[in-house]
Simulated assay, not measured.
Amino acid sequence: MSKLKIAIQKSGRLNQDSLKILKDCGVSIDNGKDQLKAAASNFPLEVLYLRNGDIPQYLKDGVVDAAIIGENLLIEKGANIAFIEKLNFSKCKVSLAIPKGEEYSDLSYFQGKKIATSYPNTVRQFLEKNNIEANLHIINGSVEIAPNIGLADGICDIVSSGSTLFKNNLKEVQVILESQAVLAVSPKINSDQKAILDKLQFRIKSVLKGRQSRYVLLNAPNEKLEKIIDILPGMRSPTVLPLAEEGWSSVHSVLDKNQFWDIIDELKNNGAEGILVCPIEKMVV
Protein backbone atom coordinates (compact mmCIF):
# COMPACT_ATOMS: atom_id res chain seq x y z
CA MET A 1 0.00 0.00 0.00
CA SER A 2 1.29 3.45 -0.92
CA LYS A 3 2.34 5.80 1.86
CA LEU A 4 2.90 9.53 1.86
CA LYS A 5 6.36 10.45 3.13
CA ILE A 6 6.29 13.78 4.95
CA ALA A 7 9.27 15.58 6.48
CA ILE A 8 9.13 17.67 9.61
CA GLN A 9 11.83 19.43 11.59
CA LYS A 10 13.75 17.01 13.82
CA SER A 11 13.87 19.48 16.70
CA GLY A 12 13.13 23.14 17.28
CA ARG A 13 10.18 25.47 17.12
CA LEU A 14 8.45 23.78 14.17
CA ASN A 15 8.63 20.23 15.50
CA GLN A 16 5.94 20.31 18.20
CA ASP A 17 3.45 22.39 16.22
CA SER A 18 3.89 20.10 13.21
CA LEU A 19 3.19 17.01 15.30
CA LYS A 20 0.21 18.70 16.91
CA ILE A 21 -1.51 19.54 13.64
CA LEU A 22 -1.05 15.97 12.44
CA LYS A 23 -2.52 14.71 15.72
CA ASP A 24 -5.45 17.13 15.40
CA CYS A 25 -6.01 15.69 11.92
CA GLY A 26 -6.56 12.30 13.55
CA VAL A 27 -3.18 10.93 12.50
CA SER A 28 -1.63 8.75 15.21
CA ILE A 29 2.15 8.58 14.87
CA ASP A 30 4.06 5.83 16.66
CA ASN A 31 7.29 7.67 17.31
CA GLY A 32 9.78 6.98 20.04
CA LYS A 33 12.57 9.17 21.34
CA ASP A 34 15.33 9.97 18.84
CA GLN A 35 13.63 8.11 15.99
CA LEU A 36 14.41 9.48 12.54
CA LYS A 37 11.41 7.79 10.91
CA ALA A 38 7.97 6.83 12.20
CA ALA A 39 4.80 5.46 10.65
CA ALA A 40 1.21 6.44 11.36
CA SER A 41 -0.92 3.59 12.69
CA ASN A 42 -4.21 4.80 11.19
CA PHE A 43 -3.30 6.74 8.05
CA PRO A 44 -1.00 5.94 5.08
CA LEU A 45 1.70 8.32 6.28
CA GLU A 46 5.38 8.05 7.18
CA VAL A 47 7.12 10.89 9.02
CA LEU A 48 10.81 11.63 8.50
CA TYR A 49 12.47 13.80 11.16
CA LEU A 50 15.11 15.85 9.37
CA ARG A 51 17.41 18.80 9.93
CA ASN A 52 15.51 21.89 8.91
CA GLY A 53 18.08 23.07 6.38
CA ASP A 54 18.11 19.67 4.63
CA ILE A 55 14.36 19.47 3.97
CA PRO A 56 14.27 21.55 0.74
CA GLN A 57 16.82 19.25 -0.92
CA TYR A 58 14.88 16.16 0.14
CA LEU A 59 11.79 17.69 -1.49
CA LYS A 60 13.69 18.51 -4.68
CA ASP A 61 15.08 14.97 -4.91
CA GLY A 62 11.73 13.34 -4.22
CA VAL A 63 13.04 11.53 -1.12
CA VAL A 64 9.98 12.94 0.67
CA ASP A 65 6.64 13.74 -0.96
CA ALA A 66 5.74 16.68 1.27
CA ALA A 67 7.02 18.67 4.24
CA ILE A 68 5.94 21.04 6.95
CA ILE A 69 8.52 23.77 6.68
CA GLY A 70 8.97 27.49 7.27
CA GLU A 71 8.10 29.57 4.22
CA ASN A 72 11.30 31.55 4.78
CA LEU A 73 13.45 28.43 4.37
CA LEU A 74 11.52 27.40 1.27
CA ILE A 75 12.24 30.82 -0.27
CA GLU A 76 15.93 30.59 0.68
CA LYS A 77 16.67 27.01 -0.36
CA GLY A 78 13.64 25.65 -2.16
CA ALA A 79 13.47 27.38 -5.54
CA ASN A 80 10.61 25.95 -7.65
CA ILE A 81 9.11 24.04 -4.70
CA ALA A 82 5.44 24.90 -4.28
CA PHE A 83 3.42 24.96 -1.09
CA ILE A 84 -0.30 24.21 -1.01
CA GLU A 85 -1.35 25.39 2.45
CA LYS A 86 -0.34 28.06 4.96
CA LEU A 87 -0.58 26.53 8.43
CA ASN A 88 -0.90 29.65 10.62
CA PHE A 89 1.80 28.77 13.15
CA SER A 90 5.53 29.43 13.64
CA LYS A 91 5.09 32.96 12.34
CA CYS A 92 8.18 35.13 12.03
CA LYS A 93 9.84 37.78 9.90
CA VAL A 94 13.13 37.87 8.03
CA SER A 95 14.47 41.35 8.72
CA LEU A 96 17.48 43.61 8.42
CA ALA A 97 18.82 44.99 11.69
CA ILE A 98 21.59 47.39 12.68
CA PRO A 99 23.17 48.61 15.95
CA LYS A 100 20.77 50.69 18.05
CA GLY A 101 23.00 53.76 18.04
CA GLU A 102 23.15 54.01 14.23
CA GLU A 103 21.01 56.53 12.36
CA TYR A 104 18.78 54.94 9.72
CA SER A 105 16.54 56.61 7.15
CA ASP A 106 16.16 54.12 4.28
CA LEU A 107 17.76 51.16 2.51
CA SER A 108 20.57 53.32 1.14
CA TYR A 109 22.14 52.83 4.59
CA PHE A 110 23.27 49.38 3.41
CA GLN A 111 24.99 50.63 0.25
CA GLY A 112 28.55 49.24 0.39
CA LYS A 113 28.02 47.85 3.89
CA LYS A 114 28.69 44.35 5.24
CA ILE A 115 25.64 42.24 6.17
CA ALA A 116 25.94 39.01 8.17
CA THR A 117 23.22 36.48 7.41
CA SER A 118 22.18 32.84 7.18
CA TYR A 119 19.86 33.76 4.31
CA PRO A 120 22.17 34.90 1.50
CA ASN A 121 19.80 34.11 -1.39
CA THR A 122 16.90 35.95 0.22
CA VAL A 123 19.02 39.00 1.07
CA ARG A 124 20.73 39.07 -2.32
CA GLN A 125 17.42 39.00 -4.20
CA PHE A 126 15.99 41.74 -1.98
CA LEU A 127 19.01 44.00 -2.36
CA GLU A 128 19.15 43.52 -6.14
CA LYS A 129 15.46 44.37 -6.40
CA ASN A 130 16.14 47.63 -4.53
CA ASN A 131 19.40 48.46 -6.38
CA ILE A 132 21.57 48.16 -3.26
CA GLU A 133 25.09 46.73 -3.45
CA ALA A 134 26.31 45.25 -0.20
CA ASN A 135 28.81 42.59 0.88
CA LEU A 136 27.29 39.48 2.42
CA HIS A 137 29.06 37.55 5.17
CA ILE A 138 27.44 34.11 5.40
CA ILE A 139 27.17 32.69 8.92
CA ASN A 140 25.54 29.38 9.81
CA GLY A 141 24.42 30.05 13.33
CA SER A 142 23.88 33.07 15.55
CA VAL A 143 24.44 36.14 13.41
CA GLU A 144 23.41 38.72 16.03
CA ILE A 145 26.91 38.96 17.46
CA ALA A 146 28.49 39.97 14.12
CA PRO A 147 28.10 43.78 14.45
CA ASN A 148 29.36 43.71 18.06
CA ILE A 149 32.66 42.10 17.06
CA GLY A 150 33.17 44.24 13.96
CA LEU A 151 32.40 41.47 11.50
CA ALA A 152 29.46 43.29 9.87
CA ASP A 153 27.59 46.59 9.84
CA GLY A 154 24.21 44.90 10.08
CA ILE A 155 22.50 41.54 9.96
CA CYS A 156 19.60 39.80 8.26
CA ASP A 157 17.93 37.09 10.31
CA ILE A 158 14.66 35.65 11.61
CA VAL A 159 12.83 37.91 14.04
CA SER A 160 10.02 36.53 16.22
CA SER A 161 9.63 38.54 19.43
CA GLY A 162 12.63 40.82 18.87
CA SER A 163 14.14 39.91 22.23
CA THR A 164 17.33 38.48 20.69
CA LEU A 165 17.94 41.71 18.78
CA PHE A 166 17.35 43.71 21.96
CA LYS A 167 19.82 41.59 23.95
CA ASN A 168 22.47 42.17 21.28
CA ASN A 169 21.89 45.94 21.13
CA LEU A 170 20.34 45.79 17.64
CA LYS A 171 17.21 47.30 16.13
CA GLU A 172 15.02 46.03 13.30
CA VAL A 173 14.94 48.50 10.40
CA GLN A 174 13.49 46.62 7.42
CA VAL A 175 11.23 43.59 7.04
CA ILE A 176 12.25 41.58 3.97
CA LEU A 177 9.49 38.99 4.22
CA GLU A 178 6.91 37.56 6.61
CA SER A 179 6.84 33.82 7.09
CA GLN A 180 4.87 31.00 8.65
CA ALA A 181 4.81 27.21 8.47
CA VAL A 182 3.54 25.84 5.16
CA LEU A 183 2.74 22.45 3.65
CA ALA A 184 5.18 22.08 0.76
CA VAL A 185 5.08 19.48 -2.02
CA SER A 186 7.85 17.70 -3.89
CA PRO A 187 7.85 18.34 -7.65
CA LYS A 188 8.42 14.56 -8.02
CA ILE A 189 5.30 13.44 -6.11
CA ASN A 190 3.39 10.70 -7.94
CA SER A 191 -0.36 10.35 -8.35
CA ASP A 192 -0.82 7.81 -5.53
CA GLN A 193 0.99 9.98 -3.00
CA LYS A 194 -0.81 13.07 -4.30
CA ALA A 195 -4.17 11.42 -3.59
CA ILE A 196 -3.10 10.76 0.00
CA LEU A 197 -1.80 14.32 0.32
CA ASP A 198 -5.16 15.66 -0.87
CA LYS A 199 -6.88 13.74 1.95
CA LEU A 200 -4.40 15.09 4.49
CA GLN A 201 -4.81 18.65 3.20
CA PHE A 202 -8.60 18.33 3.51
CA ARG A 203 -8.18 17.39 7.17
CA ILE A 204 -5.70 20.22 7.75
CA LYS A 205 -8.11 22.76 6.25
CA SER A 206 -10.84 21.52 8.61
CA VAL A 207 -8.53 21.81 11.64
CA LEU A 208 -7.34 25.31 10.68
CA LYS A 209 -10.90 26.50 10.07
CA GLY A 210 -11.91 25.15 13.47
CA ARG A 211 -9.00 26.90 15.20
CA GLN A 212 -10.09 30.21 13.69
CA SER A 213 -13.76 29.84 14.68
CA ARG A 214 -16.04 29.79 17.72
CA TYR A 215 -19.50 28.24 18.03
CA VAL A 216 -22.00 30.61 19.65
CA LEU A 217 -25.40 29.81 21.16
CA LEU A 218 -27.64 32.55 22.55
CA ASN A 219 -31.21 33.29 23.55
CA ALA A 220 -33.07 36.20 21.97
CA PRO A 221 -36.53 37.74 22.29
CA ASN A 222 -38.41 37.26 19.04
CA GLU A 223 -39.04 40.99 18.58
CA LYS A 224 -35.25 41.52 18.41
CA LEU A 225 -34.49 38.40 16.40
CA GLU A 226 -34.17 40.11 13.02
CA LYS A 227 -31.57 42.58 14.30
CA ILE A 228 -29.55 39.86 16.04
CA ILE A 229 -29.53 37.70 12.91
CA ASP A 230 -28.25 40.70 10.94
CA ILE A 231 -25.31 41.02 13.37
CA LEU A 232 -24.28 37.37 13.07
CA PRO A 233 -22.15 36.56 10.01
CA GLY A 234 -22.61 32.78 10.21
CA MET A 235 -21.51 30.27 7.62
CA ARG A 236 -24.65 30.72 5.54
CA SER A 237 -27.28 31.82 8.02
CA PRO A 238 -27.76 31.22 11.76
CA THR A 239 -29.84 28.33 13.05
CA VAL A 240 -32.95 29.59 14.88
CA LEU A 241 -35.01 27.28 17.14
CA PRO A 242 -38.04 28.18 19.32
CA LEU A 243 -37.59 27.96 23.10
CA ALA A 244 -40.14 26.46 25.50
CA GLU A 245 -40.76 29.98 26.79
CA GLU A 246 -43.08 31.73 24.37
CA GLY A 247 -41.67 34.74 22.55
CA TRP A 248 -38.05 33.56 22.75
CA SER A 249 -35.74 31.71 20.36
CA SER A 250 -32.35 30.03 20.53
CA VAL A 251 -29.85 31.19 17.92
CA HIS A 252 -26.77 29.16 16.89
CA SER A 253 -23.94 30.48 14.73
CA VAL A 254 -20.19 30.43 14.04
CA LEU A 255 -17.93 33.45 14.53
CA ASP A 256 -14.37 34.20 13.48
CA LYS A 257 -12.32 34.32 16.68
CA ASN A 258 -10.66 37.57 15.58
CA GLN A 259 -14.05 39.33 15.37
CA PHE A 260 -15.51 37.56 18.35
CA TRP A 261 -15.58 40.15 21.15
CA ASP A 262 -16.83 43.04 19.01
CA ILE A 263 -19.74 40.92 17.77
CA ILE A 264 -20.54 39.61 21.28
CA ASP A 265 -20.72 43.20 22.60
CA GLU A 266 -23.08 44.15 19.78
CA LEU A 267 -25.27 41.11 20.40
CA LYS A 268 -25.59 41.96 24.11
CA ASN A 269 -26.46 45.56 23.30
CA ASN A 270 -29.26 44.31 21.06
CA GLY A 271 -30.95 42.01 23.55
CA ALA A 272 -29.09 38.69 23.32
CA GLU A 273 -28.96 36.74 26.60
CA GLY A 274 -27.41 33.53 27.91
CA ILE A 275 -24.57 33.64 25.37
CA LEU A 276 -22.61 30.39 25.32
CA VAL A 277 -19.30 30.14 23.43
CA CYS A 278 -17.65 26.82 22.50
CA PRO A 279 -14.34 26.03 20.79
CA ILE A 280 -14.55 24.11 17.51
CA GLU A 281 -12.25 21.14 17.15
CA LYS A 282 -12.71 20.80 13.39
CA MET A 283 -14.95 22.45 10.84
CA VAL A 284 -15.67 20.67 7.57
CA VAL A 285 -16.86 23.06 4.87
Score class of each variant (00 low, 15 high):
212 Q>F: 13
123 V>G: 03
262 D>Y: 13
137 H>W: 12
190 N>Y: 01
265 D>M: 15
122 T>V: 11
256 D>Q: 02
12 G>I: 02
81 I>K: 00
104 Y>L: 14
148 N>L: 15
124 R>K: 15
232 L>V: 12
3 K>Y: 09
232 L>R: 04
284 V>D: 15
274 G>R: 07
70 G>D: 06
25 C>W: 07
95 S>N: 05
168 N>L: 05
218 L>M: 12
267 L>C: 07
139 I>K: 05
170 L>I: 01
170 L>V: 01
49 Y>S: 02
45 L>V: 00
32 G>S: 05
194 K>N: 05
232 L>G: 00
90 S>P: 04
175 V>G: 07
138 I>E: 00
263 I>D: 08
274 G>M: 04
79 A>N: 15
27 V>W: 13
26 G>E: 10
210 G>Q: 14
69 I>M: 05
14 L>D: 01
50 L>P: 08
234 G>P: 02
179 S>D: 04
253 S>E: 09
248 W>E: 07
209 K>P: 11
26 G>L: 05
89 F>N: 05
78 G>V: 14
197 L>I: 09
24 D>G: 07
280 I>R: 07
139 I>T: 02
73 L>T: 11
148 N>S: 15
13 R>W: 12
249 S>K: 08
201 Q>N: 12
246 E>H: 10
214 R>A: 08
282 K>Q: 11
74 L>V: 01
29 I>H: 14
128 E>R: 13
100 K>M: 00
89 F>D: 03
34 D>Y: 15
271 G>S: 10
188 K>Y: 08
239 T>A: 08
103 E>Q: 13
215 Y>R: 14
39 A>V: 03
102 E>Q: 13
252 H>Q: 12
141 G>T: 07
206 S>R: 10
231 I>R: 07
226 E>H: 06
164 T>A: 08
221 P>A: 15
64 V>Q: 06
119 Y>N: 11
177 L>G: 08
162 G>T: 04
161 S>I: 04
246 E>F: 03
50 L>G: 07
188 K>T: 02
152 A>P: 12
154 G>Y: 11
11 S>A: 15
190 N>T: 06
149 I>H: 01
218 L>Y: 01
280 I>P: 06
87 L>I: 01
86 K>S: 13
140 N>W: 03
5 K>C: 15
239 T>I: 08
91 K>A: 09
209 K>N: 13
176 I>R: 07
134 A>Y: 13
130 N>A: 08
76 E>W: 10
144 E>V: 03
173 V>F: 02
156 C>A: 13
182 V>D: 00
3 K>H: 00
68 I>H: 06
38 A>M: 09
33 K>T: 02
115 I>G: 11
196 I>T: 03
